[in-house]
Design a protein around this nucleic acid. Sequence first.
DNA 1: GTCCCGATTCCCT
DNA 2: GGGAATCGGGACC
Length: 197
Amino acid sequence: MPGHRWKVLPRKFYRRDPRAVAPELLNKLLVRDDGRAGRIVEVEAYCGSEDPAAHTFRGKTARNATMFGPAGHMYVYFTYGMHWCANAVCGEVGEGVGVLMRAIEPVAGIELMRAARPRAVRDRDLASGPARLTQAMGITGEFDGIDLVRNERGLRIVSDGTPPPVHAVAGPRIGISRGIEHPWRWHVPAHPHVSRK
DNA sequence: GTCCCGATTCCCT
DNA sequence: GGGAATCGGGACC
């Protein structure tokens, strides 16, 4: 992989409102040092104490502690008794805000992703969905709290120079029952690897 | 301690 | 479109 041409996103990129960070994460690359990499094509912002859909809405707990920590770290949580989901922590320490990565387009290490997701027949099913994404990339609870800026556990988010889409599609978030009025989901227009239309 | 349900996925109809 | 799988967090008694 031409890693030397990739720039790791700096801490300051994340130290902002997640609603500003989220659309700018589109077209960035989530990269593992085992060769797996994918282009981020769908994200959602979760906004702490002002957002009833956020895990952090009711304050800090053992489970969500990472979200209240420094920006640029990764919050990984377990849900539905079987799935992991991954977020980039944003904002300032104590805010409990971040961006859920919902879909990537596989761009490297696709054989490893296939091995991790043997049931996915089509490439577009490999990582189009928040739990599919973590399965394809091999992300589990062991990655909760890692510093993406420092490439901990070999995981990072980089730019290859591709800008975010000029007109990202915004709409309601998926799978939530409260806060549905907020258009805090963004995806690359007409991209086949987005989890839903 | 008990109970409900979730930032989901997959398979069946 | 509907339901099962599967279990821990968190609200509430």
